[in-house]
Computed example of a mutant assay.
Amino acid sequence: MYVADQTWPELREYVAEESVALVPLGSTEQHGPHLPLATDHLIAEALAREAADRTSVLCTPTVNVGVSPHHRQFHGTMWVDAPQFRDYVESLTRNLAYHGIDRVVYVNAHGGNAQHLREVGRRLRDDGTMYAIEWMWDESIPDLVSEVFEHNGPHGGPKETAMIQHVAGHLVREDQLEAARDGGLVDLDDSENYMMHGARTFYDAVENSGNGVFGDQTDATAEKGEQLFEAATEQLVKLVEWLDASRFEDLMAPAHLDPQPGSRR
């Protein structure tokens, strides 16, 4: 159920019985010459809406701009600084808690958001407000991604290309797939800047890829995207069902080991 499509009396019925919400998050950043800047937030919203439809839980509007300064050299990339992003997401999530939601899944499609969403989830659990966890679609189906693509690539590669071919095919520049592959980096092992003596020596995508993308984009198809989408949605549905069936008390932080601090005073 998409929250923005509902009336407030309809939502009153929901929060009286349910306590789970999905919050899709992505980015607005370069994804090479073949994919739109909207790639990440389009994927996140499509997955969250589909899982919400299948489980009848709440889905919020999408957070479209994330933590993306590592793509800043490319035209059009937008980002917010990490502290402001964390504070914004935390404030948004506390708003949901005010309305009775006590379990949230951050349906994330941008790697740059992940560690910050984990931090927000810890803040909210540590003060007993709610249980909020980050879910990254490709991390839910790693074996399938590896099976489907020989040269996957962590950004703008065939997995994201296939997903956009499936959910928003009209936005894919199909005539640019070879240019994306040839102007980027197919295999990270071929990069001279990725690792040196055990240290990551780069900060920005452009230091490893001239056009900002990785992997072999010509290996992507809408059919493969549909396969990934269905498998990831299934994993998200299972996560929601587990969360909905769990007792709130069991999701909160475990107590300090005995003896409890101050118990002997």
Rank of each mutant, 00 (worst) to 15 (best):
D102C: 08
W8G: 00
E147A: 15
V57H: 15
H116C: 09
H166Q: 14
D190L: 10
L58V: 08
E207N: 06
L243N: 08
R265M: 09
Q6T: 13
E119T: 11
T93Q: 07
T93C: 05
A179T: 11
K224M: 12
G183H: 01
I141H: 03
L25P: 03
E147S: 15
V57R: 12
F214L: 13
D87T: 10
N208V: 09
A48I: 06
D143T: 13
V57N: 10
D126C: 06
V15N: 09
D244K: 10
V172Q: 03
M195W: 15
D244V: 00
Q30F: 07
R265G: 11
G112R: 02
E134M: 11
D87L: 08
V65G: 04
L144C: 05
A220R: 02
R54N: 05
V63H: 10
Q165Y: 02
L35H: 13
V172S: 03
P154H: 02
M130N: 07
V213R: 15
T129M: 04
I101S: 03
H70E: 13
L185I: 14
T218P: 14
R173H: 09
I43D: 02
E150I: 05
M130V: 02
E90Q: 12
D138F: 09
Q235G: 10
G156C: 10
T129R: 06
E234N: 15
A232G: 14
L177K: 02
G112I: 02
L243P: 02
T39Q: 00
F214M: 15
P9H: 04
A253P: 15
T55N: 02
V3A: 15
K159T: 12
M196N: 12
N208I: 13
Y2W: 14
M78H: 04
W242Y: 00
I141F: 07
Q6G: 05
D216R: 10
D250Q: 08
L11M: 14
A180E: 06
L228K: 06
R103T: 02
F85S: 14
V167A: 08
D53M: 03
Q6A: 14
M136P: 00
I43T: 08
P154S: 07
E223P: 08
K238Q: 10
H110Y: 03
T39R: 05
P69M: 07
G112C: 08
D190W: 01
D175Q: 08
H166W: 12
V107Y: 05
H99P: 00
M130S: 03
V15W: 15
L257R: 13
D187F: 00
E119F: 01
R103E: 07
P36N: 10
V65R: 02
P61N: 08
A44E: 06
Q227Y: 14
D204V: 04
V57P: 01
A255F: 10
H197F: 04
E119P: 01
L117K: 06
V89K: 09
P33L: 01
L35I: 14
E223Q: 14
Q30V: 09
D175H: 03
Q30G: 05
M163Y: 04
H70A: 09
G212Y: 03
R86E: 15
G225A: 10
A231R: 11
H41F: 11
N95F: 00
R54D: 05
E139Y: 13
G212P: 02
D244M: 02
G212F: 05
M252N: 07
A231H: 04
A168G: 06
R49S: 12
G121D: 09
R123I: 02
T93K: 06
E160V: 01
R12W: 09
G198L: 08
